[in-house]
Design a protein around this nucleic acid. Structure first.
Length: 610
RNA sequence: GCUGAUGUGGCUCAGUCGGUAGAGCACGUCCUUGGUAAGGACGGGGUCACCAGUUCAAAUCUGGUCAUCAGCUCCA
């Protein structure tokens, strides 16, 4: 194993540093598998501890994960408290201390089943049934504990040096909600205590970065039970950012020929029957409501509205592409357990657009969308993302619109453009929208699972359902192709992303407050007020803090709560010299400049969105 | 939606065996007249998420509801 462990175990027999494979051979652990082996062994040791404390425990799967490990276990009616988890962790430490040798052996299928049955491991027996006939069924044993497992593992329990149980939750057997829910007990494990401590520090930092926490601190948004679950409200500070983002993206889109519209947040059920959403996604929409003789739903997406705008008049091939954009309010009935601040709510605002194009224009338009995505990412300094080409699962006859030729054409078109542009992407089967394949650009939040920021979807399906046409050169009616795309995704989610990336220290152009003018106590505030008003006149979001408080106090608040990019310190010296002392949030340095110099500098920063 | 945990002033949290509710920050008034990350005193502020139940008595015990968090599942 690695050098760190070598050092830490210098007094132990070198055999601790080796791993044992399922055929019984003992060898050095390849560096890249080291953590995997440690964590998998941690799962076994935890299972052993659980079995000692809860002899009726029946184990499912217990793998290593990218941070640690877990084991799914059926404990019957037993519920675990935090104290119980602590007790399990304590028992694990005991097992580690016992320094049990870990040994592997192989059994023929019948004997393997018999062994697991004799130990009341019913899920393992079922697992054996799932294995191919010629599978080698191997076991690992430490002390009284035997687990069916393909390994490899550490050779002694004492080699597990740094671990911690972190959570319990429910998880379905084989991840299928038709199956019984087991208790998933999870933890983290590392090579050394130092690495574990470093990881815990990272977790702490991630929590401090969580947009829900910063959003509350900076008064960006709020929620209230009386408003409803999953319905955050943007406060003045948050709405300032929201408006800046809206102007920013609309400007970009206007230059690319987008036309912006405003459409209502409800539509008739008939609209969604036509689009097919009613059949496919009704259960994810707010329930239908009836007014007079009409049936409505809150809209979960905007494609049908934009389709109707296209259909409002006839179109020639000369008009295409037509690009219809909207910052559109949508409502989705998201499962309660998935709601997360402004990252995922039941109401959100999409930076949506639908591009109506001829088949010949697909390539150029997809290219333009992809370029826009990465142009925007450049502006925001977004570099840590993952591109996914989401394809249909041809076997899934229920979810996807049935038209093999259409899918073939759409998927090939999208793939070709991405390849031609040199975009790195992975392909995922079964991730497409029901009407077409898509490019998703995914990012990782401070806490929780990856989500999609931007998307570009190719649709040969909905235009036909809405009977959309354009007149081609030869005078015949043709069906346009539609590109659905969202660059900032939803403004809500994009803001969540920005909050976590910047830790609330937004670039100047986005900062809710750009300048705070701070007077020293007992100083004439006239000059400060004059500068503050000049800033307001120049379009700068400035606030005057002339309270009778110490300068240290005011600076602390401006830094920690407002996270304001620039502080102007106003004392007797500044008044008498007519000069500004500008303190920067980023450098904590104070520099002297004239009022005009400062206003020119900051307005230039804002204008260029530096 | 599922499993588990949690819910106490605006925020972060204490509250032991069931006996009239606490701190720090924030806020207000006053003192301090000050130069770059916590000067001081006093004060206001809570239906202990909500609804029932047990009890002489419930923040505390029981049941239910709602919400939040972690994970699972889902995400047009």
């Amino acid at each position: 194993m690695c050098n760190i462990i070598m050092g830490a175990y210098a007094t132990y027999n070198e055999v601790y540093m080796k791993i044992i494979y399922n055929d019984g051979t003992v060898a050095e652990c390849p560096q890249e598998e080291e953590l995997q082996v440690i964590r998998h062994t941690a799962a076994h040791i935890m299972a052993q501890a659980i079995k000692r404390l809860y002899p009726h425990a029946d184990f499912g799967y217990g793998p290593a994960t990218d941070k640690g490990f877990y084991y799914d276990v059926d404990l019957g009616d037993t519920k675990l408290t935090d104290d119980d988890l602590a007790a399990i962790e304590k028992e694990m430490q005991k097992i580690v201390k016992e320094n049990l040798p870990i040994k592997s052996f192989i059994l023929p299928r019948a004997e393997a089943i018999a062994l697991m049955q004799s130990r009341n491991e019913n899920y393992k027996v079922e697992h054996i049934g799932d294995l191919p006939e010629d599978a080698i069924i191997s076991f690992y044993q430490q002390g009284e504990y035997i687990d069916m497992c393909k390994g490899p593992h550490l050779t002694y329990t004492k080699a597990l040096k740094a671990f911690k149980i972190t959570q319990q939750s429910g998880a379905y057997w084989k991840n299928d909600k038709k199956n019984k829910m087991l208790t998933r007990i999870g933890g983290v494990a590392f090579r050394t205590q130092e690495e574990l401590a470093a990881y815990e520090e990272l977790v702490k930092e991630a929590k401090a970065r969580d947009h829900r926490k910063i959003g509350k601190d900076m008064k960006l948004f709020m929620t209230d039970d009386l408003i409803g679950r999953g319905l955050p409200m943007f406060l003045p500070n948050g709405y300032e950012i929201w408006q800046q983002l809206e102007s920013y993206i609309k400007e970009k889109e206007r230059r690319l020929g987008y036309l912006h519209v405003l459409t209502p947040c409800v539509g008739t059920v008939g609209l969604y029957r036509t689009s097919g959403h009613w059949d496919h996604y009704r259960e994810n929409m707010f329930p239908m409501m009836e007014v007079d003789d009409e049936q409505f739903v809150l809209r979960p997406m905007n494609c049908p509205h934009h389709m109707m705008i296209y259909a409002n008049q006839t179109h020639s091939y000369r008009d295409l592409p037509i690009r219809i954009g909207e910052i559109a309010h949508d409502f989705r009935y998201e499962p309660s357990g998935t709601l997360k601040g402004i990252e995922r709510g039941r109401h959100f605002c999409q930076n949506d657009a639908h591009l109506f194009v001829t088949p010949e224009q697909i390539k150029d338009e997809v290219e333009s969308v992809v370029n826009l995505i990465f142009d925007v990412y450049k502006d925001f300094g977004i570099t840590n993302y993952r591109c996914v080409l989401s394809l249909r699962d041809p076997e899934d006859k229920v979810k996807y619109h049935q038209d093999d030729a259409m899918w073939e054409k759409a998927e090939t078109a999208l793939r070709d453009v991405l390849t031609a542009l040199g975009i790195q992407f992975t392909e995922e089967i079964g991730e497409a929208a029901f009407y077409g394949p898509k490019l998703d650009v995914n990012v990782q939040p401070a806490i929780g699972a990856e989500y999609t920021l931007s998307t570009c979807q190719l649709d040969f399906c909905l235009p036909a359902k809405f009977n959309l046409t354009y007149t081609d050169k030869d005078g015949s009616d043709k069906t346009p192709v539609v590109l659905h795309r969202a660059i900032l995704g939803s403004l809500d989610r994009f803001m969540a992303y920005l909050i976590e990336e910047t830790k609330g220290r937004f670039p100047v152009w986005l900062s809710p407050l750009q300048v705070k003018v701070l007077t020293l106590p007992n100083t004439d505030a006239a000059f400060a007020k004059e500068v503050h008003e000049k800033l307001l006149d120049a379009g700068v979001r400035s606030k005057l803090d002339d309270r009778n408080e110490t300068i240290g106090y005011k600076i602390r608040e401006a830094r920690q709560v407002d996270r304001v990019p620039y502080m102007l310190i106003m004392g007797a010296k500044e008044i008498s010299e007519g000069v500004l002392s500008v303190r920067s949030r980023d450098t904590d340095q104070t520099t002297q400049m004239t009022v005009d110099e400062f206003i020119n500098a900051i307005t230039e920063q804002i204008r260029t969105r530096a």
